[in-house]
Amino acid sequence: MNGVYLVLASIFMTALLRFLPFVLWKNRAIPEIVQRLGRELPYAIMAMLVVYCLRNTDFQASFGIPEAIALVVTAGLHLYKRNSLISIATGTLVYMVLVQLVFV
């Protein structure tokens, strides 16, 4: 049941963030600090999310090697090709092969 409330909370907050500007700053100037936070926040949050995804990395059994390889493949491919879909698909596939067949 807690899960349902969690989903509702996420729906509520996402919608709130999308509607708020249209309610709040309809006819008023946007405070400079809000504008600044808006410009800077995404960079820091994306870094946090990458770390968040890697928080369960197992440093005992596989020494985090599958994660490291898949990260390098994803990043390398992305810097080379700049195509998000190719980078994501290849990186994920490499990781799946590693954890299913190599580091079992």
């Binding site: 994306m46 999310l49 990458v50 995804c53 890697l54 994660e67 898949a70 990260l71 994803t74 990043a75 992305h78 998000s84 980078s87 994501i88 698909a89 990186g91 994920t92 990781y95 799946m96």
Partner: peptide, 8 residues
């Protein structure tokens, strides 16, 4: 890992 790759 698709999520990690997306964020990366």
């Amino acid at each position: 890992f698709s999520m990690t790759a997306l964020f990366l």
